[in-house]
Nucleic acid binder design. Structure first.
Length: 426
RNA sequence: GUGGGCGUAGCUCAGUUGGUUAGAGUGCUAGGUUGUGGUCCUGGAGGCCGCGGGUUCGAGUCCCGUCGCCCACCCCA
């Protein structure tokens, strides 16, 4: 809107002002509280990682590393090597690989033997075309549990997620579950699937013909009616699970049943990341647009060795904070209660009032004070808009006393400055 | 990367087949109420109609370009 140059937020990023930031804070503190009950400790890994980590960890064939990474050129490269080396660092597109990297790098299996439970909260970056429910910078809350292959851990992690989503009072959620096998049984299944798909290749859409060789499992995700219909009769992984995977899956299901978790088995559910084994799951919401996944996760028993660590089975999930916020029931009054006290008239001695207010703030009261006040009427309006609980007048006659009005019921009284903390205190 | 839609007060949007001074609601502001908010009434401020070019006597309106936003595909949280 300015003449020549306008500064605006980078595409796919958003500014969050206090009213909305408050919603983030509440969601995050709820998550921290609940996850701590499950024994998860917070882990903070850098937003910057080497591209190699995700190429190896998430997988070369995935969109996330193929076309969605934000590359960060580093400063100390000379011009000649810049082009090549520019691919070295990226803003993290997800955090599982980072957590595993940190786990291996710090030899946590030796530092703290046993099952380790971590959670993280923070921004992720993916270079995608923005749309509803899809930002280039978005926030994830995630959990990673390392060190156990027991089905009970799968169940625990899933219950944790269910518990959290349930505590938010979200409606219209669907919990999808699948088993995707392991290196023992998956390759055989994929060959079988390819044979089936090849059989009806001519009827598939163009995209799916390409997927056939690159990643046949993705054909299950296709939304074309023709492909869906054909894939409805395709062989499913579940019938080809090896004995261990089948048993594991059964036990997870039985635990979830006993926990009273409602889920749908979905043999078409294929996570888009290469590292998943055995249990995968996804929570979707019909209140969102096309990007309807609220949370997703699964078991990744081979990722730690893949990244050079000791054999360490693991499970985890992550959820999209912005997507949660979008479907969270909105409260009508957003900025209610921002101030405990709002000064509508500083009186004759404004400096004195200034320091009185400072003293109240040091005692933990949230006090609003305008240094260039308008008419009292206007100030009252502001006090109301901020949702202040009390409006305050400093009186010129008696500087030790103030007039104070309860904004909720209109009652007004005269008290000393020193009485305020007790009167107003929560 | 591919489609489709949309850019007009801070915000949500009207704006006739091109026509002279671009509107409403909300918000902001001042007053009605000589320190008192949430209702009501009255006044005021606030717009190069995204940007650039073209057609025309005349463009918010038509054409071209460009930038931006949104939605969908793809993919995912």
């Amino acid at each position: 809107m300015l003449k020549n140059y306008t500064y605006q937020a980078v595409k796919g990023t958003r500014d969050v002002f206090p009213v909305e930031a408050y919603l983030y804070q509440r969601l995050e503190s709820q998550a921290r509280k609940l996850l701590a009950c499950y024994g998860c400790g917070e882990i903070r890994t850098p937003l910057l990682e080497h591209a190699r980590l995700f190429e190896r960890g998430v997988g070369q064939g995935t969109d996330i590393v193929n076309k969605e990474m934000f590359f960060v050129p580093s400063k100390d490269q000379d011009e000649d090597s810049r082009k090549e080396n520019a691919r070295q660092m990226v803003l993290r597109p997800e955090a599982t690989a980072s957590v595993v990297r940190a786990y291996i790098e710090h030899e946590m299996d030796k530092v703290s033997p046993g099952v380790l439970r971590y959670y993280y909260i923070g921004p992720m970056f993916r270079y995608e075309r923005p749309q509803r429910g899809r930002l280039r910078q978005f926030t994830q809350i995630g959990v990673e549990v390392l060190g156990s292959a027991l089905p009970m851990i799968d169940a625990e992690v899933i219950i944790m997620l269910e518990d959290f989503l349930g505590s938010l009072g979200l409606q219209h959620l669907v919990f999808l579950l699948n088993a995707v096998g392991c290196p023992e049984c998956r390759p055989g299944y994929i060959r079988k699937l390819q044979v089936y798909i090849r059989g009806c290749q001519s009827r598939l859409c163009g995209d799916c013909r390409l997927r056939l060789d690159k990643n046949p499992l993705r054909v299950f995700d296709c939304k074309q009616p023709v492909c869906r219909e054909l894939m409805a009769r395709a062989p499913v992984m579940q019938d080809d699970l090896c004995a261990d995977c089948a048993l594991h899956h059964e036990e997870v299901l039985s635990l979830l049943d006993r926990a009273g978790i409602k889920y749908q088995k979905d043999s078409r559910l294929m996570r888009g990341l290469d590292y998943y084994t055995r249990t995968v799951f996804e929570v979707t919401s019909s209140d969102l647009g096309a990007q309807n996944a609220v949370a997703a996760g699964g078991r990744y028993d081979n990722l730690v060795t893949e990244l050079g660590g000791p054999p360490t089975p693991a499970v985890g999930w992550s959820l999209g904070v912005e997507r949660i916020l979008e479907i969270l029931p909105r409260e009508p009054d957003k900025s209610r209660g921002f101030f405990d006290i709002y000064v509508v008239s500083p009186g004759a001695d404004t400096t004195r009032t200034f320091f009185k207010v400072m003293a109240l703030r040091r005692q933990g009261l949230r006090v609003g004070l305008e240094h260039e006040p308008k008419s009292v009427k206007a100030m009252m309006k502001r006090a109301d808009r901020w949702g202040a609980r009390w409006a305050l007048w400093a009186t010129s006659k008696n500087p030790e006393k103030v007039e104070i009005k309860n904004m909720a019921n209109g009652e007004q009284m005269s008290v000393g400055w020193e009485d305020l903390p007790q009167l107003v205190g929560k």
